[in-house]
Write a protein that binds this DNA or RNA. Structure first.
Length: 266
DNA sequence: ATGCCGTATAAGATACGA
């Protein structure tokens, strides 16, 4: 089963490039972030016509996540548990950043799609929100691990895990994506017992999933690796491969992110 | 580079991103 995570930076702007990619690559599951659309505005028929089941968790203008799957999606939940002031104005669940569903192939896999807050400027209230969000993700990961079943958490983590995951790490030193407190929080989630799929398959520097639109970042390979798959042990046992489809960044009307893939024996 | 580009909202600037 081939599963991709892809921050598309707006479904309206990306509909052409995204459908071309879907038709070409035929992912079994595509986990999307930054759809920047309400659920009713997402062009689900386009993907349904191509054989996909579609589940979205959107909002007006910003954020928004979705899962497309050739196999049925079961037990869909929207939102990350544990929000402070849930349901009230300005609460931690105001932003549409998280969706879960189970995909049943040869094995059942719990798929968690996430768009972790950027957190800049750091320090500050946006950074505090990022850290709270990561604590909630930690708690949800703990529950998934306790179930001892195949599950993965995939998406735009807005975290550069290590120095080798940025072309110019010194430029990111105090940024919310790379500062020590952010990397610590990511490591705490991993240390519960999750496998970061890409680093099982590829060592070394120069592998990125995001390049800024500005200053010719793509042409200089001035990128960062911030889109990740974390796998429970039962899911890691199924891992055949993990790779980044960086070529997509050089196409017409690209997102600033590219797809990251896992192939699972499931 | 407290904004070099891009997206969304909405009708001209402004918010946001990483």
């Amino acid at each position: 089963m081939k599963i991709a995570t892809f921050n598309i930076n707006g479904i309206k702007a990306r509909i052409g490039a995204l459908t071309d990619w879907i038709v070409e690559q035929q992912p079994d599951v595509a986990i999307l972030q930054e759809i920047k659309s309400v659920d009713e505005g997402f062009p689900r028929e386009i993907f349904e016509d191509k054989g996909y089941n579609v589940e979205t968790h959107g909002q007006k203008g910003f954020n928004g996540v979705a899962i497309l799957s050739k196999l049925p999606l079961e037990d869909v939940t929207r939102g990350l548990p544990g929000a402070e002031g849930a349901g009230r104005e300005g609460a931690d669940d105001d932003e549409a950043r998280y969706i879960e569903a189970t995909v049943v192939g040869k094995k059942a896999i719990r798929i968690c799609g996430l768009y972790l807050p950027n957190g800049n400027p750091a320090p500050g209230p946006k950074y505090d929100y990022k850290l709270r969000w990561m604590q909630r993700l930690h708690d949800r990961a703990q529950e998934l691990l306790a179930a001892e079943e195949p599950a993965l958490m995939a998406g735009d983590y807005n975290i550069i895990p290590q120095t080798e995951d940025a072309a110019r790490p010194e430029a990111w030193r105090d940024d919310a994506l790379f500062r020590l407190e952010s990397r610590d929080a990511f490591r705490r989630i991993q240390n519960l017992g999750l496998t970061e799929a890409f680093r099982v398959c590829e060592a070394g520097s120069g592998h990125y999933s995001f390049w800024d639109y500005q200053a010719g970042a793509w042409n200089k390979n001035d990128g960062i690796r911030i889109d990740h798959f974390l796998l429970t042990p039962q899911c890691a046992d199924l891992l055949n491969n993990c790779w980044i489809e960086s070529e997509v960044r050089g196409r017409d009307k690209p997102s600033d992110h590219v797809p990251v893939w896992v192939d699972l024996a499931a």
